[in-house]
Amino acid sequence: LVRYRTISKIPQITLNFVDLKGDPFLASPTSDREIIAPKIKERTHNVTEKVTQVLSLGADVLPEYKLQAPRIHRWTILHYSPFKAVWDWLILLLVIYTAVFTPYSAAFLLKETEEGPPATECGYACQPLAVVDLIVDIMFIVDILINFRTTYVNANEEVVSHPGRIAVHYFKGWFLIDMVAAIPFDLLIFGSGSEELIGLLKTARLLRLVRVARKLDRYSEYGAAVLFLLMCTFALIAHWLACIWYAIGNMEQPHMDSRIGWLHNLGDQIGKPYNSSGLGGPSIKDKYVTALYFTFSSLTSVGFGNVSPNTNSEKIFSICVMLIGSLMYASIFGNVSAIIQRLYSGTARYHTQMLRVREFIRFHQIPNPLRQRLEEYFQHAWSYTNGIDMNAVLKGFPECLQADICLHLNRSLLQHCKPFRGATKGCLRALAMKFKTTHAPPGDTLVHAGDLLTALYFISRGSIEILRGDVVVAILGKNDIFGEPLNLYARPGKSNGDVRALTYCDLHKIHR
């Protein structure tokens, strides 16, 4: 019993810090008490220290592992850092350059016999395009090294910054494609005289377009951006097909006994025919423009016929181009109408809503002055909100995010209106959640004399007048207030005048 009563005193000691020596009952000389009392004092002292730490809000209350900052290894790049964003855009520009100039170089340097010394005699450094290609190869190699040090988000939505895990993730992902696209074939085969082989191998750079397509997928929600990307894709495919079309004609031209190829026909049409040795002929500019003209006309199913396939190889390629053109029509131009419709969806919704308003007016036989006010209010409210119901949009977000959005939407009023000066951010967040926005066209009466005042109004834009009878008592403008002081009276009061809008007004109100 003594032991039980001794232990039962522990909660009292913990909360009230009572010393055991003052209790005459606990001072009985028993061996059990002498053993338990020192333990009680020690526990009391420890609990006292913990309570003191909690009340003082000291940093040592938290466990040590929670006080440590997340460790980022040296030379690790955050995937959302500004440097990584700028670097990704730079790589994107280099990939676009590669997609345009690599097929052009591979096709127009394929057994090209233009006048001038061969590239091997001039030297590697004197070729501007080769120098640019070398810079692109170096940048792609540097990009691989950067990807080995860039964080990523795993399946659990955690940012991984450990170098080993980053390397394994990159090896399992895009490393092989990036490595093949970054191989400097110019340096590996330079001086061997195989410019045709170098041009063909350099087309491996186009593998990076797969990554670019995935990154550009984030802009699919913007109709104008999608339309622009589709047109660029169409032009890029036409450019690639033009390079292939020229390569076919250029390879067949020296081996044909009869002059029936499209390059021969082009030379005869523009007065620059090929001679018996295969030299001469149109310039590279004429060849490229004509090839691009043929691919565009074939892809769009126009086909004027002034550039036509004559050999079997050219006919087979033309059939493939027609098939590609039909697929592009289905996948690209078939979506253009939907994209344009999405661009004008706001206008369509406006006309639909206006039609419903006019049908309501016609069905209920609203008189002319009231009908005009109804239409003007709808037009003004639509121009202010673009038909978007803010309350319906915010309803799907958590309250903390709703408060931040409301604070942002009402920031101008909260910053410049005098009653809100000096208020804490928590108070402003709470008030912003209570605001209701209303609009009024010129001549609209917001409050009639004798109406119950259940709200306090803040003028965000425009001006109003307060009338008693036919006498203008006051004219209020931006950041002015009218209405009933909230919670100042037990019952809502009545208006002693009319409140009429002089201009288009936007008002925020808080109800009782």
Results as ranks from 00 to 15, higher is better:
N410F: 09
A247C: 01
L229M: 09
R429S: 04
M390F: 07
L370R: 01
G305V: 01
A130P: 01
R371M: 03
I141R: 01
K84R: 01
V447P: 02
I270H: 01
T203G: 05
L292S: 01
I96P: 01
E196R: 14
T424H: 09
K287L: 03
N275L: 05
L209N: 01
I183E: 01
W89R: 01
A235H: 01
L409Y: 03
S297F: 01
T424C: 09
F234K: 04
K434F: 03
A107P: 01
Q341N: 04
S283A: 01
S161H: 12
P70V: 06
I189E: 12
A204P: 05
V86I: 14
P419V: 13
I72C: 06
W262V: 03
F185S: 04
Q372W: 03
L78K: 14
V86F: 12
C427W: 01
C243F: 01
L176S: 11
A235E: 01
V336N: 03
L230C: 09
Y293A: 01
D404Q: 03
C243P: 01
T300S: 03
Q253A: 14
D286E: 06
A432N: 01
A381T: 13
P367W: 01
L206Q: 01
Q379V: 07
C427Q: 10
V159A: 01
K436R: 12
T300K: 01
D286G: 01
A242N: 01
P117S: 08
Q415H: 08
E158S: 09
A440I: 13
R373K: 13
I340V: 10
L145K: 01
A119M: 05
C427G: 03
E375I: 15
S345R: 06
R342C: 04
F108S: 01
G278K: 05
N306T: 01
T300R: 03
K425H: 09
A432M: 10
K395M: 08
F294V: 01
P369T: 04
L90P: 01
R356T: 12
S105N: 15
G261N: 08
T347K: 03
M328I: 08
F83L: 09
V307Y: 03
E157K: 13
W382F: 04
D133L: 01
T113P: 06
P82G: 14
K172S: 04
I198M: 07
S412Y: 11
A403Q: 10
I189W: 13
G249H: 01
G223Y: 05
L263E: 03
L176R: 01
T233Y: 04
L176D: 01
Y293E: 01
L187I: 14
A125G: 08
C122A: 01
D286Q: 01
T352H: 13
E121Y: 12
A213R: 10
W87L: 01
